[in-house]
Design a protein around this nucleic acid. Structure first.
Length: 416
RNA sequence: CGGGAUGUAGUACAACGGCAGUAUACACGAUUCGGGUUCGUGAGAUCCGGGUUCAAUUCCCGGCAUCCCGACCA
């Protein structure tokens, strides 16, 4: 991508109406645009990072045999009445609207009910189980107060996977496999070191649910971390009997602020019973399907990465989620240097390397570096009259600050 | 939902009730060219509705929007 053609521009000032670090950096860098409180659009740079996060999650879900589908955001009232979750007193974040003929409908807050209902037409036998179904789909939640930039929004894409098993035992295995996949996802997006499997309140089918909590000061959740065991307990379940149940000692726990980046939950037969999702076992006996749900908000994850790794005027994305692999920057007004830059750009893009090339004529070195610091691509290649006369291009790894002058050819080789 | 605050060029900020200004971004012309260079010219704004007043960006009322604290967040 040639930066001279990129429609989004960076801003020098932080927005006054969004004070969170993630919103400030993402808006200034031109990754997102705030449409209204708690509602954001993703611009080309932001969409690239969002899609990389989504792709990582997708790969891990597919590796477990997850089947991707895409369900509608408009949902039928009757389906939700079957599980008694239509009433605003039960679920208070509903956006509801009406068809022209006055039929009430809801905008998806989650998909347990519609998906369970859908699967009643497809799952009939123990041979159909276990089944894992997931999607990346837009959820709407009418939060009383949106806050924290991408951390709590009213409209957001969620990866929601639902597992369908024959019984608690089979569910247990699936649940454990999802747990491992989640650990892998947070490692791959660069948050592995500061993300903890956290025990939180469960439901009628399991003593706990599990959250994945990323430790940062911007977090809304209070957790207690056992560094040695690399697990944590949410403050909401911090009780003596819980600690002894989990084999944790009070004195090993350190209180931390954290952002919930994932949640996995045993649903049991609550929804399958309500919506009639049953299967026949080997003896032909009809039984309700045993369910679980597993959520990650890719955009919240994106915001969390900034909160954890960004500073006031700078961002360095983990390589796997950076919008581009390399930021190629041309400096000065030397014709030869510009030509060399464009040549490297073409060579790399022909090889399929994702390059953001700052080919802008009007911008000074300071502006280009400032913008690049904000956009946050970890690898940088600078081409100028100076770099050429000293042997080629300047290759910068922003993560360790290492700078080396190498030939254009070597740079291309390193980036393949 | 309770409490507090704010709404002025694209953005970030000024303006005692009396000609709406600065910075930056933008357009044009110079200048400069490895960390937001310098100079000139130009264009660009008071959230909406009502009230008080000779006069309202400023004061009052209502609406809408936004932020902050709290509550809430399977």
């Amino acid at each position: 991508m040639l930066q001279s053609k990129l429609f989004s521009k960076t801003r020098r000032e932080s927005p006054k109406d969004d004070v969170s670090k993630n919103a400030s950096i993402l808006i200034r860098a031109g990754f997102i645009n705030k449409e209204m409180a708690g509602v954001y659009s993703f611009l080309p740079l932001g969409l690239r990072t969002l899609n990389k996060i989504i792709q990582i999650i997708r790969e891990e879900m597919d590796a477990l045999g997850g089947q991707e589908l895409l369900m509608s955001a408009l949902q039928e009232k009757e389906t939700w009445e079957a599980s008694d979750r239509w009433d605003d007193d039960v679920v208070d974040v509903w956006f509801k609207t009406k068809l022209k003929n006055n039929t009430e409908i809801g905008l998806a807050t989650t998909h347990e009910e519609p998906l369970t209902k859908l699967l009643t037409e497809h799952i009939h036998s123990y041979r159909d189980l276990p089944t894992l179904v997931y999607q990346f789909q837009t959820k709407f939640r009418n939060e009383l107060r949106a806050k924290g930039g991408l951390l709590r929004t009213r409209e957001f894409i969620m990866k929601d996977l639902y597992s369908f098993c024959r019984d608690k035992e089979e569910h247990g295995k699936v649940y454990e496999s999802l747990k491992k996949a989640y650990v892998k996802i947070f490692e791959r997006v660069g948050l592995g070191d500061i993300t903890y499997l956290t025990f939180a309140s469960g439901g009628s089918f399991s003593p706990y649910s599990h959250e994945f909590q990323t430790v940062t000061l911007a977090g809304e959740d209070n957790i207690y971390v056992d560094e040695g065991k690399r697990i944590a307990v949410n403050a909401e379940v911090l009780k003596d009997e819980v600690l002894s149940d989990l084999g944790l000692k009070k004195e090993d726990l350190i209180p931390k602020k954290a952002i919930e980046v994932g949640n996995i939950f045993t649903l049991g037969t609550r929804f399958s019973e309500a919506l009639g999702l049953v299967y026949a076992d080997e003896a032909g006996v009809k039984k309700p399907v045993f369910m679980g749900s597993y959520g990650i908000g890719p955009a919240r994850l994106m915001g969390t990465i900034i909160e954890a790794l960004g500073s006031d005027n700078e961002m360095i994305w983990p390589e796997n989620v950076a919008p581009f692999r390399v930021h190629l920057i041309n400096l000065g007004n030397d014709k030869n240097a510009k030509e060399q830059t464009l040549k490297i750009y073409k060579t790399l893009t022909d090889k399929g390397v994702e390059v953001l090339c700052d080919d802008r004529d009007g911008a000074t070195a300071g502006e280009k570096f400032g913008d690049a610091d904000l956009i946050g691509i970890p690898l940088r290649v600078v081409v100028s009259e100076k770099s050429i006369s000293s042997g080629g291009v300047e290759f910068v790894d922003r993560r360790d600050g290492k700078v080396s002058i190498i030939s254009a050819k070597e740079a291309v080789e390193k980036l393949k």
